[in-house]
Simulated scan of single mutants.
Amino acid sequence: MRRFTTTLAIAATLFASSTAFAQSDAQSGSDTDWPTRPINVIIGASPGGDTDFNARTFAQYFEQVTGQSMVVTNTPGGGATIATSAVRDADPDGYTILFGHTGHLIVAEVSGLADYGLDAFEICCVPAVDQGAVIVTSSASGIESVEDLVSQTKESPDSVIYGTELGGYSHLQGLMLQNQTEAQMRLVDTGSAAEKIAALLGGRIQVAGIAYGAVQDYVEGGQMNVIGQPNDARNPLIGDIPTFAEQDIDFVMTNPYIIAFPKGTDQAIVDKMGEIAEEISEIPEYAEALEQGFKQPVSFMPRDEAVTRLNEIRDRYMDYRDELQASR
């Protein structure tokens, strides 16, 4: 009798939970009760970086909105192809998603690291846009401006080393900076953002593209200089730093984050995730967390707008395909 009573209690709890989800879906106009269990979120980056921060911050508010958790799994390596392949090949049941950015889903294709791209996934939305990236130099290099960078490389070709991850997003940053300024730098594979910072401080490289939040203390302490931000308009959260466009340099490279599902995932699930992501973007505490974490303004693009924007970025990056692939 006791076992029967316990079973009834569990059944009643499950029924109440499913009823609550159904009521929520009815109010939002969705016809799916997803999610009913934790979501596996795969990211192609190590813990502690900007992608990891964005994914985990989003996961925190996803649970607040839906009552279901997100389990973030860091799967770095291979230019994020290990992570993207895992999601591409996963069961399209709505419980495995990719939280990545253009470096993972566009640059990897352009550079030849992956033989697939955006079309291999169900793109849901752009839940955030990284506008905190800056180009920094070590103070020891004597490079305090774009003019200094160009003149130093003209006086001594290849003497200025740009630290990057060959075949990845920061490599493309270096190529675009170099092409638009005519500064002939030597691009060297130095690894992650933490490794770039160590290399800048140690004098092994002179220039790198890094999130401002990761180098702010060194800039304020005088060990590093910021020569520009590659945004189309100033990000006011990173201080009085001019864009490259303000310096008459056509170097704009914002980095949208992307939520994507395996191909074949029910469109109702994809749509509902988009609705949830938009709701999260309207939570003041979420915006405050992004600002404090990586000096990132809150932003959101629904599916159609996201796909259009991402394909525009892909078309532009394809101009650098041969240079990226030559480095491999």
Rank of each mutant, 00 (worst) to 15 (best):
E291R: 08
Y257W: 13
V71H: 12
Q152S: 09
S30R: 14
M224V: 04
V129S: 10
G202Y: 03
I205G: 02
I82F: 12
T32L: 06
P297L: 10
L237E: 08
T32D: 06
Y317V: 02
D248T: 14
F53A: 00
S46I: 08
I249G: 09
T153R: 07
P38K: 03
D115I: 01
V219H: 10
P47E: 00
M253F: 15
A20H: 02
Q223N: 12
T84C: 02
S138I: 06
Q60G: 09
Q180K: 14
T51Q: 03
A208G: 09
A26W: 08
F53I: 00
L8P: 09
A26K: 12
Q184Y: 13
T254K: 13
Q229I: 09
I135V: 11
M253P: 13
D250Q: 12
E312F: 09
D315F: 04
V110D: 04
D31C: 11
Y169W: 15
T243I: 02
T254V: 13
S85P: 14
A16M: 05
P256E: 05
A128Y: 05
I161D: 06
F58S: 06
A22K: 00
K272P: 03
D240E: 14
G264C: 03
S327G: 10
A208N: 10
R204K: 15
I43D: 00
Q152T: 12
T190Q: 11
D115H: 02
A268D: 15
K196C: 00
G117W: 13
Q223Y: 04
I227N: 04
K154S: 07
S145T: 14
L201S: 10
F294N: 07
S85E: 14
A26H: 13
F53E: 00
L324R: 05
V126T: 15
A20N: 03
I269V: 13
P302H: 15
K196S: 00
M301D: 11
R314T: 02
I258Y: 03
I123G: 10
G239N: 02
I39K: 01
M273R: 11
D115Y: 01
A183L: 05
L105Q: 07
F15T: 15
E122I: 06
D158R: 11
S111W: 01
A245M: 12
Y162H: 11
R303F: 08
D93W: 02
I205M: 00
I283M: 10
R314H: 13
G222D: 00
E109A: 08
V72G: 00
V126K: 08
R328V: 07
G293C: 07
Y320W: 11
M273E: 12
P262S: 07
S30Y: 10
T84Y: 01
V87S: 03
P262L: 06
L14C: 06
I259K: 02
A120Q: 07
G48Q: 04
E147N: 14
T164A: 15
A22W: 00
E279K: 14
